[in-house]
Write a protein that binds this DNA or RNA. Structure first.
Lengths: 142, 142
DNA sequence: GGCAAAGTGGGGAAAAGTGGGGAGTTTTGT
DNA sequence: ACAAAACTCCCCACTTTTCCCCACTTTGCC
């Protein structure tokens, strides 16, 4: 169960410390890959296996399916959490998500999402103006 | 079953004592998150699990659904009740609900709602003059 | 009044976050 | 082919934050 929003930093060596509260639900290994909205996603192994299996089952004939597989599998990196609780973010993924320095990690229950600080702030301001929309959707859940 | 309204304080370390009468129905753990109306909500674990499961089932492709998940999951914090019956309210949530010092906790049957004193008073004065009108709108529900 | 429970406050130990050195390996360029 | 540069990985060290424990005050109840 991943919960909460955390601001921290990626150091000059491309290392990213996973906040302790998110780390607890993560094993020793995890998979980091791209998300369509220009951020990164970190899956624990069991969740990743489920996702990978679903992706593999898509029709190989469908071009969109293949493109999606390239996107997810091709952008993925298996990460080990080191003794300090950090993972290494490959340069290609740092580049994709425009991450350099300040980072925001968000627990999303089943997985972790990683944004560059700048992109996150931009997203926040967009959503905050629309909080009534969120409230309306919440109502629908009950 | 959470009932009643309680005024108390949040100390300088961000700790909030849950009133004993609300604490009884709460286990050792609970989840605190945001509400769209600028206050906080504290769910006991069984109630939270129900909400979290519904939220996770929403389509990941729908942007509104993702915004809602960011709002709820990203704003959530798993709280353990310490030996003094207190929880820690993360700075980000204190900030969101404008809480510093005086607090009002309200039992809402299935969950607990936490307001800053100032926002609560404002709400009270707004609603009190209009309670007949609000009740009238609910006639169809009962 | 006296006792017990609840609410409030603070100090110190432990953990988390951050940064950097250096050995070993791979890549790059001449 | 060889040297230089870049990248990994494994340590260690320092600062900040968090957590746990203890103590005092206040409230409610017998």
């Amino acid at each position: 169960m991943f919960l909460g929003t955390f601001e921290h930093t990626l150091d000059a060596k491309g290392r990213l410390a996973i906040p302790a509260k998110l780390r607890n639900s993560l094993g020793e290994k995890a998979v980091l890959t791209r998300s369509p909205d220009r951020c990164l996603v970190l899956y624990p192994m069991d969740e990743w296996n489920r996702l990978a299996q679903q992706l593999s089952q898509l029709s190989q004939v469908d071009r969109n399916a293949r493109d999606l597989q390239y996107f997810i599998f091709g952008g993925a990196s298996e990460c080990e959490i080191d003794a300090q609780g950090r993972i290494i973010v490959p340069a290609m993924l740092r580049n994709y998500a425009s991450i350099d320095g300040d980072v925001v990690s968000v627990g999303m229950n089943t997985h972790i999402v990683i944004w560059s600080q700048a992109a996150w702030v931009e997203r926040e301001t967009r959503v905050n103006g629309d909080i009534d929309n969120i409230a309306a959707q919440l109502v629908g859940l009950f």
